[in-house]
């Protein structure tokens, strides 16, 4: 705890870096994963390969994945972001598919029957109804990414992992604890914050999508 008290600026700086990396990664993963999930529900033959590939990527140890990526993306942020995007895809794609599959067939039939086009069905009916499940996937991905991002220090990227790696090198337990503690708090905060955001969005979407 001493390190936290003595170097609040440094810890804050690293926390901001950490949050940035996670936010950018999860953001990209959402932009890729949600459309990919939608695509899978339209062309079912994609489901096996897409979910399978995402699942396999998820099992690759993070340090190994960084190592594999370095020749292509170099030492630095790019490598970390690509890796975190790949890890986040599984939860987001899978939950997008589950959320869309969970909509009652009668609701979809009604959407077609009243004369909604494909895009209108997606925006007015399917995504709003799948949103709680998609958001649960995003939460899962974010919490995992906060943890995995600590390894980023291994490829020279600043973040809370820097404290842990430095602490390990100097046998300075205080630093390790500081990094781990802040990372844990960050993960919990992200989890809680996204849950609240979900509640808000759901209420809001209901209003805006309903009344247009």
């Amino acid at each position: 705890m001493e390190y936290l008290r003595e170097h609040p600026d440094r810890v804050w700086e690293l926390t901001v870096e950490h949050v940035q990396v996670v936010a950018v990664s999860v953001g990209i993963a959402i932009l890729l994963g949600v459309p990919l999930g939608i695509l899978v529900t339209r062309w079912r033959r994609l489901e096996g390969p897409v979910i399978g590939a995402a699942g396999m990527l998820y099992t690759v140890p993070s340090l190994a994945l960084f190592g594999i990526l370095i020749p292509y993306t170099g030492l630095g942020r790019d490598t970390v972001i690509v890796a975190l995007v790949l890890y986040s895809l599984l939860a987001i794609v899978r939950n997008t598919v589950a959320g869309l599959d969970g909509i009652l067939p009668a609701t979809l039939d009604a959407a077609r029957g009243v004369g909604m086009g494909g895009g209108q069905r997606l925006v007015m009916v399917e995504l709003p109804l799948a949103l709680p499940v998609i958001l649960a996937g995003i939460r899962l991905a974010t919490v995992a990414a906060v943890g995995i991002a600590t390894i980023a220090a291994a490829v020279g990227v600043d973040g809370l992992g820097r404290l842990i790696f430095d602490g390990m090198r100097r046998l300075d337990t205080d630093r390790i604890v500081a990094g781990a503690l802040v990372a844990s708090v960050l993960a919990l905060a992200a989890d809680w914050g996204l849950a609240r955001l979900g509640d808000l969005l759901r209420r809001d979407l209901r209003r805006s999508v309903g009344r247009g």
Binding site: D109, V114, G115, M116, M124, P128, L129, R206, V209, G210
Partner: peptide, 21 residues
């Protein structure tokens, strides 16, 4: 799409949109 908008459609249990009032 135009055809369906010009034809009323009722299904079992109404097929209402749960997130619409």
């Amino acid at each position: 799409v135009d055809l369906r908008r010009g034809i009323g459609y009722v299904i079992q249990q109404g097929g209402l949109f749960p997130h619409f009032t």
